[in-house]
Amino acid sequence: MIHWGLEVVLLVLLLSTAIIALKVKDLLAAVVTLGVFSFLSALVFVAMGAVDVGFTEAVVGAGVTTVLFVIALYHTTRRSND
């Protein structure tokens, strides 16, 4: 039987960031929230014992992907109807 403690807390946070990222109308805010999401998920990975996945996610998900997202927005538009 597995007892989850920290993970559950982190996951709830994760879920809320995910929902925020999808709900926010300003795309830049959404993307930054997604960065937070990635970072939190990196924490979850570490908490679950997957250290390497954790810091890969931190670098790639929270770092590179967010940068790419921001650049994509910079070139397109920040506005969104939903």
Binding site: V51, T56, V59, G63, V64, V67
Partner: peptide
């Protein structure tokens, strides 16, 4: 230990991107 080509490469890329930004 934890780590490897992909993670290292991604970190290196991050550093380069930092300079580019």
């Amino acid at each position: 230990g934890p780590g490897g080509g992909f993670q290292g490469g991604a970190i290196l890329a991050a550093s380069l991107l930092l300079i580019r930004l």
